[in-house]
Computed example of a mutant assay.
Amino acid sequence: MNAEGIEYASAAYEEMERYFNRVVDARRARPGNDLVSLLLTVEEPVTGSR
């Protein structure tokens, strides 16, 4: 991948990250009946080791 391709991919990643952050913030404020809302309710078990 050349420098232009890397720049394009980086910009696309940043745009996607902003989009998903907005979706997560919206679902935290107002949960719905969707996968993102469900995932936000799941807690990982505490095991003491990783």
Rank of each mutant, 00 (worst) to 15 (best):
G32N: 06
S10N: 10
E43M: 13
E44N: 14
E15I: 13
E43F: 07
S10G: 10
M16G: 15
G32H: 07
F20C: 09
A11R: 12
S49F: 06
S10C: 02
P31Q: 06
D25V: 14
E17C: 11
A26L: 04
E15C: 11
G5M: 06
T41S: 13
A29N: 04
M1A: 12
G5L: 09
G5Q: 13
T41K: 14
A11K: 11
L39S: 09
M16A: 15
M1Y: 08
R22L: 07
T47W: 00
Y13F: 02
A12S: 06
S10H: 14
A12W: 04
E14T: 08
E4V: 05
P31C: 06
R50T: 10
N21I: 06
S49Q: 14
G5N: 06
D34K: 02
R28C: 02
R27D: 04
V46K: 12
E44V: 15
R27C: 06
A11S: 09
R27L: 00
L35N: 10
A3L: 06
R30L: 09
Y19V: 06
V24M: 08
F20H: 14
N33W: 04
R30W: 04
E14K: 15
A26Y: 03
E44Q: 15
V46R: 11
E43A: 14
L40C: 01
L35R: 08
